[in-house]
């Protein structure tokens, strides 16, 4: 029961974050007149469709104009364009929640649709694929290296990891990506420079998968490099703090083998704070993904952000801001569950 309660509280606070972002964006959109523009565009788009279908049946031009004018007034009232923007707040929030943001100005989905939801949802899996694989690789390497160097403080390896972690904090993911492109794609010519598939893509499913894998190497590698240093360092510090505790000394004094002490008495205790630092690094890796996708032309939501900015496509940008926040909240919640599972104190309070 208590476990469920904790999760509900965590979940609620994350929903508050999501709603804050939603309202913040809607208020900004309303107060700057963007919401009016978005809705007016939607109205005229609907009227254009109506005019096309009606012109088959109604021959008289004045009658046609009359019908369309009536419909325009209906639509304006329906979308609330006749009232100030703040009356439309709940409606706008709902529209963003359902990604019902009308049509993109110039951007198209890969299948040719210009509906914002089609464009954004099509890219979502690619971003999720990139972020999750990078996070999993980073966590595994970070855990392994972090624990290893915690046992040999002052060694050459420990010092170089510490320096590497400091340097990677100052290393923008996008610049590193550019360097990797120059190095691996143009100098050594061993990896593709951008995109997700070769042109033309292979037809056989397994070859297609391999092709995707090869294209993913550089972006994932970039993301791992920028975050693995600080992560190993965080793990090292946490493990080091706990290994100085009395109960660890007791375990050693009992004569338990070192790897058992490490596994049962140190890592098990260090696990919750390690997950916390993973949580804290989450917004960073999300931002890193946006920039990495842009550099590598990876067709995910981050690259779409860049394209939408260049094309000044506001409805796509609104949708993306919401989707990234949603992605963050979901990832965050998964980590919170992991935290609760790892830390018995939260469960049996």
């Amino acid at each position: 029961m208590s476990l469920l309660q904790t999760l509900i509280v965590r979940g609620l606070s994350l929903i508050v974050v999501l709603i804050t972002v939603l309202f913040l964006s809607v208020i900004v959109l309303g107060a700057t007149g963007y919401s009016d523009r978005l809705l007016t565009a939607t109205v005229s788009e609907e009227l254009r469709g109506l005019r096309q279908s009606l012109s088959q049946n109604i021959r008289d031009p004045t009658e046609l104009e009359q019908v369309i004018e009536d419909r325009r007034e209906q639509l304006i009232e329906f979308y609330g364009l006749d009232r100030p923007w703040y009356y439309r707040l709940p409606d706008m929030v709902f529209r963003i929640l359902t990604l019902d943001l009308g049509e993109a100005r110039t951007l198209r989905s890969f299948t040719g649709s210009n509906r914002v939801s089609d464009i954004v949802l099509e890219r979502l899996p690619n971003t999720v694929l990139l972020i999750t694989s990078a996070t999993i690789i980073t966590s595994i390497i970070g855990l392994y290296v972090g624990v290893k160097i915690a046992t040999q403080v002052g060694s050459r390896l420990e010092r170089s990891v510490s320096y590497f972690s400091a340097i990677s904090y100052a290393l923008p993911a996008w610049w590193l990506g550019i360097i990797f492109i120059i190095l691996f794609a143009f100098q050594l010519r061993i990896l593709p420079s951008s995109g997700m598939y070769s042109v033309p893509p292979p037809t056989e499913p397994f070859a297609l998968f391999l092709d995707k894998l090869v294209h993913a190497i550089l972006p994932v590698f970039t993301l791992v490099i920028v975050s693995v240093g600080s992560w190993s360092y965080a793990v090292r510090t946490m493990v080091l703090n706990i290994s100085q505790e009395d109960f660890v000394n007791v375990a050693r004094a009992k004569g338990l083998p070192e790897n058992l002490v490490m596994r049962r008495h140190i890592i098990r205790v260090a696990a919750p704070p390690i997950v916390t630092s993973l949580i804290l690094g989450l917004t960073g890796s999300l931002g890193g993904a946006i920039l990495t996708e842009t550099v590598f032309g990876w067709p995910g939501m981050g690259r779409l952000y860049y394209e939408a900015i260049l094309a000044a496509d506001e409805s796509v940008i609104v949708a993306l801001t919401f989707m990234f926040t949603l992605l963050y909240v979901i990832a965050r919640f998964i980590l919170e569950i992991l935290y609760v599972v790892l830390d018995p104190r939260v469960r049996y309070k």
């Binding site: 606070s13 994350l14 508050v16 974050v17 804050t20 972002v21 913040l24 964006s25 900004v28 959109l29 700057t32 963007y34 989450l282 917004t283 999300l286 931002g287 946006i290 920039l291 952000y305 900015i309 506001e314 940008i317 609104v318 993306l320 801001t321 990234f324 926040t325 963050y328 965050r332």
Partner: peptide, 20 residues
């Protein structure tokens, strides 16, 4: 503070700068 620090920075920064 809890709510604000939980908002992913880059997306919201992009959104606000694009609008303003």
């Amino acid at each position: 503070a809890d709510t604000l620090s939980n908002i992913p920075l880059l997306p919201i920064l992009l959104f606000l700068i694009f609008i303003f």
